[in-house]
Amino acid sequence: MKNQLQQDIVQKLRQRILAMQGIGKTNNGHCNMGLGLIEAAFPDGVFPTGAVHEFVSMEPEAAAATSGFLSCLLTNLMRKKGFCLWISSRRLIFPPALKLFGVDPEQVIFIDLKTDKDVLWAVEEALRCSALIAVVGEVKELSFANSQRLQLAIEQSKVTGFIHRIYSRTENNTTCAVRWKISPISGITETDMPGVGFPKWNVELTKVRSGRTGIWELGWTPSGFQHFSKPSSDTDIQSEKSQYA
C-alpha cells in the first residue's frame, strides 16, 4: 500500500518535471506514431507531440532521407483534418512525392522565404497558431536563443515543430526536446529480386530530453514503419521483421 503511494507520488513528480521541461503532458493527446521500439526511448514511452524536434543532415542524400522520415511522421500526425506548414528558404520537396508517404500534399502549405531569419520568424509565428497540426522549418543553423524562442511559442499552443537543419555545420546546444539524425541505407527488397525497393533508414537519436539515445534501423512501406532489429547488414536484410502500426 505504502509502496503504491510512493509510486504514485513519483509518477506525479515525473509528470511535473516533464511539464517544466516543456515536454508537456505526454499521455494526453496520445498519438500512435508506429515507431515501435524507438518510442520506448522517449519519456513515458510516448512520442512527444507539442515539442520541437530537431533533425540534422549534412548532405543532400541525408536531407532527402530526413524529409522522407518527416513525411512519415506527418502522415501519422495528420490523421485528423488540418493544415501543416512547411517553411523553407531552400526548398527541394517535390510535392507529388509526399503522397507516396501518405501525406496529402494539398494539406501542406509551403512557405518559401529568402533568408533563414525570415524562416525562423515564420516558424515562430506558425508555432503560436494552435490550429495547425505541425510546422516544419528548414534552416541551416539554429542558435540556442532561436530555439528558446521556438520553445516558448510551442508551450502555449502545443503544436509539434520539426526543425530540419540542412547542411548544418555545427551541432550546437539547443532547447529542442529530441535531436534526430537520419541517413539512408540500402532499401527493403525481397531476396534475389531486382530493384531498389522501399526506403530504409538509419535512425539515430542523439539527444532525447528525459529519455535515452540510440540507433535503430527503420523502413517504410505503404502499410507503415518496418522495424529491423540490430544488427542488420546490407546483404542480410531479410532478418527478423516486425511490423508496427
Binding site: 509551403f110 497558431c129 490550429a131 495547425l132
Partner: peptide
Amino acid sequence: TNPVAELIDKIIGKRGEHVVQRYFP
C-alpha cells in the same frame, strides 16, 4: 475567424503573396 488564414495573411503581409503556395495535382 480562421487562425490559419490569419497566420497566412500575416506572412503574406510581411513578405508578399508569392511566398505562400499550395500544390494540387
